[in-house]
Design a protein around this nucleic acid. Structure first.
Lengths: 192, 192
DNA sequence: TTTGGCATGTAATCCGTTACATGATTAG
DNA sequence: CTAATCATGTAACGGATTACATGCCAAA
């Protein structure tokens, strides 16, 4: 049973470093707190939990809530150590793969209106993100005002805000550019 | 020999829709033109080329340049059709996975200076990107001033510019926030 | 009683990178 | 001569998603 250095492992370890949790809890937590820059599926969580326990980095707790099947894990000192060692390593850059940009790059062979629809959809998605970030930030600042980790949480949120804001601006610029293209192609192909 | 709907397939098909090319050429092209938002390795390119040829979406050409081993592929009408069909489909959002944000989120258990170094490195990387985008844009506008695809190329470049610019700003903001944290922790833990 | 959320897990599969293997050609 | 670049390909491996399978409990 090998366990590599995948960052999934550390996302799970990091979550358990905040509070003991079951696989299900971890999934919930990831979605609600770091969901805008990270994701985990049950398909990785449960196998990794087993391996982490096997390696002594986490430990299953006894307290079974209610009688419902439920395994809660807590991080061990050894796990904390490995987590800290990983945290200080230089982060690897994520490989860039943007499907919308790939499509736009080759979009000259498709109707301009299709590209505009794609960009418009992207814009809406990013605006939804922006609204969510604002809500989350307000919630955090009220409920965890003095929490020692708050500054770090706000930092990752702010990343999302900057990024989404920039993409919305790009969408607007791009929609204008595409509209221009559309006008030109209509002049040529349209009614004489 | 199955061939799924992975976007790699269409990145390759798209490249061949611009001009016939060998696997080696494709790799070069991807790096130099869409490298800031896409990447392909030889390990996928060559097997996919075989499968695309097998499916009749591309065709190997005869002209062997120089005598050096070299297989140049050209897209077929059938390939063009499949490409166009894919281009107009709604692009899927890329799953978010940012290792640097993951590390920052849990960074409270590490020295502030480490986080600052990580953010500083990120800032430099994005500034290098910005410089590259400017160079590429100037090159494109000079050498391909009237090329019909130019507007689309500029659109993808502009995305990179907006995004990198926003991240640099976030880096500055974050470095300031971290410096503040550092001052506070020094007051508490430092010399009385 | 039935729906939805809680809860865990496995198997199939896909997709892609890395490392390896090989060799020709060309520029210095 | 020799280093770099051109050029193609495979095998091993790893990492992650998806779909599937299962079943309890609480609330409507």
């Amino acid at each position: 049973m090998r366990l590599g250095d995948s960052s999934s492992k550390f996302a799970i370890l990091g979550t358990l470093s905040l509070h003991p949790a079951s696989g299900y809890d971890i999934k919930q937590f990831v979605e609600s707190s770091i969901g805008h820059f990270w994701n985990e599926s049950y398909g990785s969580i449960y196998p990794i939990l087993k391996k982490l326990a096997h390696a002594g980095l986490i430990q299953p707790e006894k307290g079974s809530r209610g009688g419902r099947e439920r395994v809660v894990y807590a991080i061990t000192p050894k796990g904390e150590k490995e987590l800290r060692e990983w945290l200080v390593l230089p982060p690897r850059a994520e490989p860039a793969r943007s499907e919308i940009l790939l499509k736009l790059f080759f979009a000259q062979r498709t109707p301009v209106s299709t590209s505009m629809a794609q960009v418009q959809e992207k814009k809406l998605a990013e605006e939804r993100n922006l609204a969510a970030y604002t809500r989350i930030r307000e919630g955090l600042e009220q409920e965890h005002a003095r929490h020692p980790e708050l500054p770090y949480w706000l930092i990752t949120l702010s990343y999302g805000r900057h990024r989404s804001q920039a993409i919305v601006e790009w969408c607007n610029e791009t929609l204008a550019a595409l509209a221009k293209l559309q006008k030109i192609s209509k002049q040529k192909g349209g009614p004489k």
